[in-house]
Design a binder for these strands. Sequence first.
DNA 1: AGATAATTTGACCGATTGGTAAACATTACA
DNA 2: TGTAATGTTTACCAATCGGTCAAATTATCT
Lengths: 214, 214
Amino acid sequence: MAIPRAAKTQRRTRIQEEKEEQILEAALDVFSARGFRGSTIDQIAEVAGMSKPNLLYYFRTKEAMHRALIDRVLYTWLEPLRAFDAEGNPENEIRSYIRRKLELARDFPRESRLFANEVLQGAPHIEDELKGPLKQLVDEKAEVIRAWAKAGKIAKCDPYHLIFSIWSTTQHYADFDVQVRAVLGQEHAGAGRFEDAARFLEQLFIGGLMVRPA
Amino acid sequence: MAIPRAAKTQRRTRIQEEKEEQILEAALDVFSARGFRGSTIDQIAEVAGMSKPNLLYYFRTKEAMHRALIDRVLYTWLEPLRAFDAEGNPENEIRSYIRRKLELARDFPRESRLFANEVLQGAPHIEDELKGPLKQLVDEKAEVIRAWAKAGKIAKCDPYHLIFSIWSTTQHYADFDVQVRAVLGQEHAGAGRFEDAARFLEQLFIGGLMVRPA
DNA sequence: AGATAATTTGACCGATTGGTAAACATTACA
DNA sequence: TGTAATGTTTACCAATCGGTCAAATTATCT
Protein backbone atom coordinates (compact mmCIF):
# COMPACT_ATOMS: atom_id res chain seq x y z
CA MET A 1 0.00 0.00 0.00
CA ALA A 2 1.34 3.38 -0.95
CA ILE A 3 1.36 5.95 1.80
CA PRO A 4 2.66 9.26 0.57
CA ARG A 5 4.98 11.47 2.46
CA ALA A 6 5.93 9.34 5.39
CA ALA A 7 2.56 9.31 7.06
CA LYS A 8 3.44 6.09 8.76
CA THR A 9 7.20 5.83 8.90
CA GLN A 10 7.88 9.25 10.37
CA ARG A 11 11.35 9.14 8.87
CA ARG A 12 11.72 10.30 5.28
CA THR A 13 13.23 8.02 2.75
CA ARG A 14 16.28 8.99 0.73
CA ILE A 15 14.12 8.80 -2.36
CA GLN A 16 11.49 10.99 -0.78
CA GLU A 17 14.04 13.64 0.02
CA GLU A 18 15.55 13.59 -3.45
CA LYS A 19 12.28 13.56 -5.33
CA GLU A 20 10.64 16.26 -3.25
CA GLU A 21 13.69 18.42 -3.83
CA GLN A 22 13.52 17.70 -7.54
CA ILE A 23 9.83 18.57 -7.65
CA LEU A 24 10.17 21.82 -5.73
CA GLU A 25 13.02 22.88 -7.97
CA ALA A 26 10.84 22.28 -11.02
CA ALA A 27 7.83 23.90 -9.38
CA LEU A 28 9.89 27.01 -8.65
CA ASP A 29 10.81 27.17 -12.30
CA VAL A 30 7.23 26.96 -13.48
CA PHE A 31 5.35 28.87 -10.77
CA SER A 32 7.81 31.77 -10.86
CA ALA A 33 7.50 32.07 -14.62
CA ARG A 34 3.76 31.68 -15.03
CA GLY A 35 2.12 32.28 -11.66
CA PHE A 36 0.06 29.76 -9.75
CA ARG A 37 -3.03 29.76 -11.92
CA GLY A 38 -1.05 29.90 -15.13
CA SER A 39 1.00 26.84 -14.24
CA THR A 40 -0.01 23.23 -14.79
CA ILE A 41 1.04 20.10 -12.99
CA ASP A 42 2.01 18.59 -16.32
CA GLN A 43 4.50 21.39 -16.92
CA ILE A 44 6.07 20.88 -13.53
CA ALA A 45 6.17 17.15 -14.11
CA GLU A 46 7.92 17.62 -17.42
CA VAL A 47 10.55 19.95 -15.96
CA ALA A 48 11.05 17.58 -13.05
CA GLY A 49 11.41 14.70 -15.47
CA MET A 50 8.74 12.53 -13.91
CA SER A 51 5.17 11.54 -14.57
CA LYS A 52 2.24 13.55 -13.27
CA PRO A 53 0.86 10.84 -10.97
CA ASN A 54 4.34 10.43 -9.60
CA LEU A 55 4.41 14.09 -8.70
CA LEU A 56 1.05 13.76 -7.03
CA TYR A 57 2.39 10.90 -4.99
CA TYR A 58 4.69 13.33 -3.20
CA PHE A 59 2.42 16.36 -3.19
CA ARG A 60 -1.24 15.57 -3.14
CA THR A 61 -2.32 18.78 -4.87
CA LYS A 62 -0.98 21.64 -6.92
CA GLU A 63 -1.62 23.89 -3.95
CA ALA A 64 0.48 21.66 -1.70
CA MET A 65 3.46 22.12 -4.01
CA HIS A 66 2.99 25.84 -4.04
CA ARG A 67 2.65 26.07 -0.30
CA ALA A 68 5.73 23.96 0.33
CA LEU A 69 7.62 26.24 -2.02
CA ILE A 70 6.40 29.43 -0.38
CA ASP A 71 7.21 28.16 3.08
CA ARG A 72 10.71 27.17 2.11
CA VAL A 73 11.49 30.41 0.32
CA LEU A 74 9.90 32.89 2.67
CA TYR A 75 12.46 32.53 5.41
CA THR A 76 15.44 33.02 3.12
CA TRP A 77 13.82 35.97 1.51
CA LEU A 78 13.47 37.95 4.71
CA GLU A 79 16.97 37.17 5.90
CA PRO A 80 18.54 40.49 4.82
CA LEU A 81 15.93 42.51 6.68
CA ARG A 82 16.40 40.34 9.74
CA ALA A 83 20.12 41.10 9.60
CA PHE A 84 19.37 44.80 9.84
CA ASP A 85 21.14 45.76 13.05
CA ALA A 86 19.98 48.49 15.39
CA GLU A 87 23.42 48.74 16.96
CA GLY A 88 25.27 49.12 13.69
CA ASN A 89 26.23 52.23 11.82
CA PRO A 90 23.14 53.48 9.95
CA GLU A 91 24.94 54.22 6.71
CA ASN A 92 26.60 50.82 6.69
CA GLU A 93 23.40 49.01 7.60
CA ILE A 94 21.37 50.64 4.85
CA ARG A 95 24.13 50.23 2.32
CA SER A 96 24.60 46.54 3.04
CA TYR A 97 20.86 45.92 3.18
CA ILE A 98 20.54 47.34 -0.31
CA ARG A 99 23.45 45.29 -1.53
CA ARG A 100 22.17 42.09 0.00
CA LYS A 101 18.73 42.58 -1.49
CA LEU A 102 20.30 43.30 -4.85
CA GLU A 103 22.39 40.15 -4.62
CA LEU A 104 19.27 38.19 -3.85
CA ALA A 105 17.58 39.63 -6.91
CA ARG A 106 20.58 38.64 -8.99
CA ASP A 107 21.12 35.17 -7.54
CA PHE A 108 17.54 34.12 -6.83
CA PRO A 109 15.34 35.82 -9.40
CA ARG A 110 12.90 32.92 -9.47
CA GLU A 111 12.21 33.24 -5.79
CA SER A 112 11.62 36.95 -6.23
CA ARG A 113 9.21 36.36 -9.08
CA LEU A 114 7.39 33.67 -7.16
CA PHE A 115 6.51 36.23 -4.50
CA ALA A 116 5.86 38.96 -7.01
CA ASN A 117 3.39 36.78 -8.86
CA GLU A 118 1.71 35.86 -5.64
CA VAL A 119 1.42 39.37 -4.23
CA LEU A 120 0.48 40.85 -7.59
CA GLN A 121 -2.47 38.52 -7.83
CA GLY A 122 -3.75 39.44 -4.39
CA ALA A 123 -1.62 37.10 -2.27
CA PRO A 124 -4.39 34.52 -1.99
CA HIS A 125 -2.04 31.97 -0.43
CA ILE A 126 0.17 34.08 1.80
CA GLU A 127 -2.05 36.78 3.24
CA ASP A 128 -1.52 35.50 6.76
CA GLU A 129 2.25 35.51 6.41
CA LEU A 130 2.16 39.11 5.21
CA LYS A 131 -0.08 40.38 7.98
CA GLY A 132 1.69 38.31 10.61
CA PRO A 133 5.43 37.59 10.56
CA LEU A 134 6.26 40.05 7.78
CA LYS A 135 4.43 42.98 9.32
CA GLN A 136 5.95 42.19 12.69
CA LEU A 137 9.47 42.16 11.31
CA VAL A 138 8.95 45.36 9.36
CA ASP A 139 7.40 47.11 12.36
CA GLU A 140 10.42 46.19 14.42
CA LYS A 141 12.94 47.43 11.87
CA ALA A 142 10.91 50.55 11.17
CA GLU A 143 11.26 51.40 14.82
CA VAL A 144 15.04 51.10 14.52
CA ILE A 145 15.06 53.49 11.58
CA ARG A 146 12.79 55.90 13.35
CA ALA A 147 15.14 55.92 16.30
CA TRP A 148 18.09 56.69 14.03
CA ALA A 149 16.19 59.59 12.56
CA LYS A 150 15.23 60.88 15.97
CA ALA A 151 18.86 60.71 17.07
CA GLY A 152 19.86 62.73 14.03
CA LYS A 153 21.91 59.91 12.57
CA ILE A 154 19.90 59.96 9.37
CA ALA A 155 17.45 62.38 7.84
CA LYS A 156 13.91 62.35 9.16
CA CYS A 157 11.82 60.12 6.91
CA ASP A 158 9.00 57.63 6.93
CA PRO A 159 10.69 54.31 7.73
CA TYR A 160 7.98 52.17 6.11
CA HIS A 161 8.21 53.93 2.80
CA LEU A 162 11.98 53.72 3.01
CA ILE A 163 11.76 49.96 3.33
CA PHE A 164 9.21 49.76 0.52
CA SER A 165 11.47 51.76 -1.75
CA ILE A 166 14.43 49.49 -1.07
CA TRP A 167 12.30 46.44 -1.72
CA SER A 168 10.89 47.79 -4.94
CA THR A 169 14.09 49.16 -6.44
CA THR A 170 16.09 46.02 -5.78
CA GLN A 171 13.46 43.43 -6.66
CA HIS A 172 12.73 45.37 -9.82
CA TYR A 173 15.88 43.90 -11.34
CA ALA A 174 14.58 40.37 -10.81
CA ASP A 175 10.87 40.85 -11.41
CA PHE A 176 11.11 43.17 -14.40
CA ASP A 177 14.28 41.70 -15.80
CA VAL A 178 12.82 41.44 -19.29
CA GLN A 179 11.97 45.12 -19.32
CA VAL A 180 15.33 46.12 -17.92
CA ARG A 181 17.09 44.08 -20.58
CA ALA A 182 14.89 45.46 -23.33
CA VAL A 183 15.56 49.06 -22.32
CA LEU A 184 19.26 48.72 -21.61
CA GLY A 185 19.80 46.67 -24.74
CA GLN A 186 23.13 45.19 -25.68
CA GLU A 187 25.22 48.20 -24.88
CA HIS A 188 24.67 47.90 -21.13
CA ALA A 189 24.55 44.12 -20.92
CA GLY A 190 26.69 41.76 -18.94
CA ALA A 191 27.97 41.64 -15.42
CA GLY A 192 28.49 45.38 -15.21
CA ARG A 193 24.76 45.91 -14.90
CA PHE A 194 24.71 44.66 -11.35
CA GLU A 195 27.47 46.98 -10.28
CA ASP A 196 25.87 49.93 -12.06
CA ALA A 197 22.62 49.31 -10.25
CA ALA A 198 24.34 48.88 -6.90
CA ARG A 199 26.31 52.07 -7.35
CA PHE A 200 23.26 54.07 -8.32
CA LEU A 201 21.06 52.78 -5.51
CA GLU A 202 23.72 53.42 -2.89
CA GLN A 203 24.16 56.92 -4.20
CA LEU A 204 20.42 57.48 -4.18
CA PHE A 205 19.69 56.16 -0.73
CA ILE A 206 22.80 57.29 1.05
CA GLY A 207 22.70 60.69 -0.61
CA GLY A 208 19.00 61.05 0.06
CA LEU A 209 19.05 59.96 3.66
CA MET A 210 22.34 60.85 5.24
CA VAL A 211 22.58 64.03 7.18
CA ARG A 212 25.55 65.87 5.79
CA PRO A 213 27.84 67.76 8.08
CA ALA A 214 27.37 71.47 7.55
CA MET B 1 -24.84 37.10 -42.03
CA ALA B 2 -22.80 38.19 -39.07
CA ILE B 3 -19.61 40.03 -39.81
CA PRO B 4 -17.74 40.93 -36.66
CA ARG B 5 -16.06 44.21 -36.02
CA ALA B 6 -17.17 46.26 -38.97
CA ALA B 7 -15.28 44.33 -41.60
CA LYS B 8 -17.80 45.48 -44.15
CA THR B 9 -19.44 48.62 -42.86
CA GLN B 10 -16.22 50.47 -42.00
CA ARG B 11 -18.19 52.60 -39.55
CA ARG B 12 -18.53 51.15 -36.06
CA THR B 13 -21.98 50.73 -34.67
CA ARG B 14 -23.03 52.39 -31.45
CA ILE B 15 -23.54 48.92 -30.03
CA GLN B 16 -20.10 47.86 -31.16
CA GLU B 17 -18.50 50.79 -29.44
CA GLU B 18 -20.39 50.24 -26.21
CA LYS B 19 -19.87 46.51 -26.06
CA GLU B 20 -16.20 46.61 -26.92
CA GLU B 21 -15.74 49.18 -24.19
CA GLN B 22 -17.67 46.98 -21.79
CA ILE B 23 -15.57 43.96 -22.69
CA LEU B 24 -12.22 45.72 -22.37
CA GLU B 25 -13.25 47.11 -19.00
CA ALA B 26 -14.06 43.60 -17.81
CA ALA B 27 -10.94 42.17 -19.42
CA LEU B 28 -8.82 44.74 -17.59
CA ASP B 29 -10.38 43.63 -14.34
CA VAL B 30 -9.65 39.97 -14.94
CA PHE B 31 -6.31 40.10 -16.76
CA SER B 32 -4.82 42.54 -14.25
CA ALA B 33 -5.86 40.36 -11.34
CA ARG B 34 -4.93 36.94 -12.68
CA GLY B 35 -2.53 37.40 -15.58
CA PHE B 36 -3.16 36.29 -19.13
CA ARG B 37 -2.81 32.56 -18.66
CA GLY B 38 -4.64 32.58 -15.36
CA SER B 39 -7.68 34.32 -16.84
CA THR B 40 -10.53 32.65 -18.67
CA ILE B 41 -12.91 34.02 -21.23
CA ASP B 42 -15.80 32.86 -19.08
CA GLN B 43 -14.61 35.05 -16.22
CA ILE B 44 -14.38 38.07 -18.47
CA ALA B 45 -17.78 37.30 -19.90
CA GLU B 46 -19.30 37.10 -16.44
CA VAL B 47 -17.76 40.41 -15.33
CA ALA B 48 -18.87 42.00 -18.59
CA GLY B 49 -22.34 40.64 -18.06
CA MET B 50 -22.61 38.90 -21.40
CA SER B 51 -22.34 35.39 -22.80
CA LYS B 52 -19.06 33.91 -23.90
CA PRO B 53 -19.98 33.56 -27.59
CA ASN B 54 -21.12 37.15 -27.49
CA LEU B 55 -17.68 38.19 -26.27
CA LEU B 56 -16.07 36.21 -29.02
CA TYR B 57 -18.25 37.97 -31.53
CA TYR B 58 -16.40 41.20 -30.78
CA PHE B 59 -12.96 39.77 -30.11
CA ARG B 60 -12.21 36.60 -32.00
CA THR B 61 -9.73 35.26 -29.45
CA LYS B 62 -8.58 35.73 -25.89
CA GLU B 63 -5.32 37.07 -27.27
CA ALA B 64 -7.17 39.68 -29.31
CA MET B 65 -8.77 41.04 -26.13
CA HIS B 66 -5.45 41.16 -24.38
CA ARG B 67 -3.73 42.85 -27.27
CA ALA B 68 -6.45 45.48 -27.64
CA LEU B 69 -6.12 46.18 -23.94
CA ILE B 70 -2.34 46.47 -24.04
CA ASP B 71 -2.42 48.76 -27.05
CA ARG B 72 -4.96 51.06 -25.47
CA VAL B 73 -3.19 51.24 -22.13
CA LEU B 74 0.41 51.51 -23.30
CA TYR B 75 0.12 55.03 -24.63
CA THR B 76 -1.45 56.42 -21.48
CA TRP B 77 1.07 54.66 -19.34
CA LEU B 78 4.09 56.31 -20.91
CA GLU B 79 2.54 59.77 -20.92
CA PRO B 80 4.36 61.02 -17.80
CA LEU B 81 7.76 60.08 -19.18
CA ARG B 82 6.89 61.72 -22.48
CA ALA B 83 6.07 64.91 -20.59
CA PHE B 84 9.57 64.95 -19.15
CA ASP B 85 10.92 68.22 -20.47
CA ALA B 86 14.56 68.87 -21.31
CA GLU B 87 14.06 72.62 -21.09
CA GLY B 88 12.44 72.56 -17.69
CA ASN B 89 14.01 72.87 -14.29
CA PRO B 90 15.53 69.49 -13.35
CA GLU B 91 14.24 69.45 -9.80
CA ASN B 92 10.73 70.35 -10.92
CA GLU B 93 10.77 67.84 -13.75
CA ILE B 94 11.87 64.96 -11.57
CA ARG B 95 9.52 65.94 -8.79
CA SER B 96 6.51 66.14 -11.05
CA TYR B 97 7.44 62.96 -12.88
CA ILE B 98 7.44 61.11 -9.59
CA ARG B 99 4.15 62.63 -8.61
CA ARG B 100 2.51 61.85 -11.90
CA LYS B 101 3.66 58.25 -11.80
CA LEU B 102 2.42 57.96 -8.24
CA GLU B 103 -0.95 59.37 -9.24
CA LEU B 104 -1.13 56.82 -12.03
CA ALA B 105 -0.43 54.04 -9.56
CA ARG B 106 -3.19 55.36 -7.32
CA ASP B 107 -5.78 56.02 -10.02
CA PHE B 108 -5.05 53.20 -12.45
CA PRO B 109 -3.74 50.28 -10.43
CA ARG B 110 -5.28 47.73 -12.77
CA GLU B 111 -3.37 49.11 -15.72
CA SER B 112 -0.17 48.94 -13.70
CA ARG B 113 -0.83 45.33 -12.73
CA LEU B 114 -1.67 44.41 -16.28
CA PHE B 115 1.83 45.40 -17.33
CA ALA B 116 3.42 43.97 -14.24
CA ASN B 117 1.82 40.59 -14.86
CA GLU B 118 2.90 40.71 -18.46
CA VAL B 119 6.51 41.72 -17.84
CA LEU B 120 6.86 39.43 -14.86
CA GLN B 121 5.91 36.46 -16.99
CA GLY B 122 8.46 37.28 -19.65
CA ALA B 123 6.48 39.83 -21.67
CA PRO B 124 5.45 37.25 -24.27
CA HIS B 125 3.01 39.66 -25.89
CA ILE B 126 4.78 42.98 -25.67
CA GLU B 127 8.43 42.26 -26.24
CA ASP B 128 8.48 44.33 -29.42
CA GLU B 129 6.93 47.33 -27.71
CA LEU B 130 9.54 47.15 -24.97
CA LYS B 131 12.50 46.89 -27.30
CA GLY B 132 11.06 49.43 -29.73
CA PRO B 133 9.03 52.45 -28.66
CA LEU B 134 9.75 52.10 -24.95
CA LYS B 135 13.50 51.78 -25.32
CA GLN B 136 13.53 54.68 -27.75
CA LEU B 137 11.64 56.93 -25.36
CA VAL B 138 13.81 55.98 -22.42
CA ASP B 139 17.00 56.46 -24.42
CA GLU B 140 15.86 59.93 -25.34
CA LYS B 141 15.00 60.96 -21.78
CA ALA B 142 18.14 59.35 -20.42
CA GLU B 143 20.09 61.64 -22.67
CA VAL B 144 18.32 64.64 -21.16
CA ILE B 145 19.19 63.50 -17.67
CA ARG B 146 22.78 62.84 -18.65
CA ALA B 147 23.00 66.36 -20.04
CA TRP B 148 21.69 67.79 -16.78
CA ALA B 149 24.31 65.87 -14.86
CA LYS B 150 27.05 67.01 -17.20
CA ALA B 151 25.96 70.62 -16.78
CA GLY B 152 26.14 70.19 -13.01
CA LYS B 153 22.42 70.75 -12.56
CA ILE B 154 22.02 67.42 -10.81
CA ALA B 155 24.42 64.91 -9.32
CA LYS B 156 26.23 62.59 -11.70
CA CYS B 157 24.28 59.35 -11.89
CA ASP B 158 23.24 56.60 -14.24
CA PRO B 159 20.10 57.94 -15.91
CA TYR B 160 18.70 54.52 -16.78
CA HIS B 161 18.85 53.27 -13.24
CA LEU B 162 17.33 56.53 -12.10
CA ILE B 163 14.36 55.96 -14.36
CA PHE B 164 14.10 52.33 -13.25
CA SER B 165 14.06 53.36 -9.63
CA ILE B 166 11.30 55.88 -10.19
CA TRP B 167 9.27 53.29 -12.05
CA SER B 168 9.73 50.64 -9.41
CA THR B 169 9.11 52.78 -6.35
CA THR B 170 5.94 54.34 -7.71
CA GLN B 171 4.44 51.27 -9.35
CA HIS B 172 5.16 49.31 -6.20
CA TYR B 173 2.14 50.97 -4.60
CA ALA B 174 -0.14 49.60 -7.31
CA ASP B 175 1.47 46.24 -7.99
CA PHE B 176 2.20 45.25 -4.41
CA ASP B 177 -0.79 46.99 -2.90
CA VAL B 178 -1.78 43.93 -0.89
CA GLN B 179 1.65 43.76 0.71
CA VAL B 180 1.75 47.48 1.40
CA ARG B 181 -1.65 47.28 3.05
CA ALA B 182 -0.69 44.23 5.08
CA VAL B 183 2.48 45.85 6.39
CA LEU B 184 1.06 49.28 7.07
CA GLY B 185 -2.07 47.83 8.62
CA GLN B 186 -4.94 49.95 9.81
CA GLU B 187 -2.87 52.59 11.54
CA HIS B 188 -1.49 54.00 8.30
CA ALA B 189 -4.57 53.42 6.16
CA GLY B 190 -6.62 55.89 4.20
CA ALA B 191 -5.88 58.78 1.94
CA GLY B 192 -2.83 59.87 3.89
CA ARG B 193 -0.86 56.96 2.52
CA PHE B 194 -0.56 58.55 -0.88
CA GLU B 195 0.78 61.80 0.54
CA ASP B 196 3.19 59.96 2.82
CA ALA B 197 4.58 58.05 -0.13
CA ALA B 198 4.84 61.16 -2.27
CA ARG B 199 6.61 63.08 0.45
CA PHE B 200 9.08 60.30 1.07
CA LEU B 201 9.89 59.69 -2.58
CA GLU B 202 10.41 63.37 -3.28
CA GLN B 203 12.71 63.60 -0.30
CA LEU B 204 14.61 60.52 -1.44
CA PHE B 205 15.06 61.48 -5.06
CA ILE B 206 15.52 65.20 -4.66
CA GLY B 207 17.80 64.75 -1.68
CA GLY B 208 19.76 62.04 -3.42
CA LEU B 209 20.17 63.76 -6.75
CA MET B 210 20.28 67.47 -6.26
CA VAL B 211 23.59 69.16 -6.03
CA ARG B 212 23.52 71.24 -2.92
CA PRO B 213 25.08 74.63 -2.84
CA ALA B 214 28.27 74.50 -0.82
C1' DA C 1 -44.22 46.87 -42.60
C1' DG C 2 -40.74 44.09 -44.66
C1' DA C 3 -36.06 43.02 -45.82
C1' DT C 4 -31.51 42.93 -44.53
C1' DA C 5 -27.78 43.29 -41.58
C1' DA C 6 -26.17 43.07 -36.82
C1' DT C 7 -26.35 40.88 -32.46
C1' DT C 8 -27.12 37.19 -29.06
C1' DT C 9 -27.61 32.61 -27.41
C1' DG C 10 -27.66 27.46 -26.33
C1' DA C 11 -25.69 23.47 -27.66
C1' DC C 12 -21.68 21.61 -28.63
C1' DC C 13 -16.50 20.29 -29.82
C1' DG C 14 -11.84 18.58 -29.07
C1' DA C 15 -8.08 19.61 -25.98
C1' DT C 16 -6.43 20.31 -21.54
C1' DT C 17 -7.12 20.76 -16.66
C1' DG C 18 -6.35 18.72 -11.68
C1' DG C 19 -6.73 14.51 -9.80
C1' DT C 20 -7.76 9.13 -9.05
C1' DA C 21 -7.57 3.86 -9.24
C1' DA C 22 -5.28 0.11 -9.58
C1' DA C 23 -1.85 -2.65 -11.50
C1' DC C 24 2.96 -2.94 -11.65
C1' DA C 25 7.91 -2.34 -10.26
C1' DT C 26 11.33 -1.44 -6.96
C1' DT C 27 13.41 -0.96 -2.59
C1' DA C 28 14.44 -1.96 2.20
C1' DC C 29 14.81 -5.01 5.71
C1' DA C 30 13.97 -9.42 8.32
C1' DT D 1 15.62 -14.67 -0.24
C1' DG D 2 10.99 -13.46 0.77
C1' DT D 3 7.84 -10.08 1.88
C1' DA D 4 5.93 -5.90 3.05
C1' DA D 5 6.37 -1.12 2.25
C1' DT D 6 7.51 2.20 -1.03
C1' DG D 7 7.62 4.06 -5.52
C1' DT D 8 5.99 4.37 -10.52
C1' DT D 9 3.05 4.02 -14.47
C1' DT D 10 -0.94 3.30 -17.54
C1' DA D 11 -5.43 4.24 -18.14
C1' DC D 12 -8.83 6.94 -16.91
C1' DC D 13 -12.26 10.54 -14.86
C1' DA D 14 -15.24 14.77 -14.49
C1' DA D 15 -14.65 19.59 -15.04
C1' DT D 16 -13.08 23.31 -17.50
C1' DC D 17 -10.59 25.37 -21.27
C1' DG D 18 -10.77 28.27 -25.84
C1' DG D 19 -13.53 28.36 -29.54
C1' DT D 20 -17.41 27.09 -33.26
C1' DC D 21 -21.98 26.79 -35.27
C1' DA D 22 -26.50 27.41 -36.49
C1' DA D 23 -30.54 29.12 -35.02
C1' DA D 24 -32.95 32.80 -32.84
C1' DT D 25 -33.41 37.56 -31.75
C1' DT D 26 -32.93 42.45 -32.33
C1' DA D 27 -31.72 46.77 -34.65
C1' DT D 28 -31.59 49.48 -38.92
C1' DC D 29 -33.12 51.33 -43.03
C1' DT D 30 -36.32 51.90 -46.96
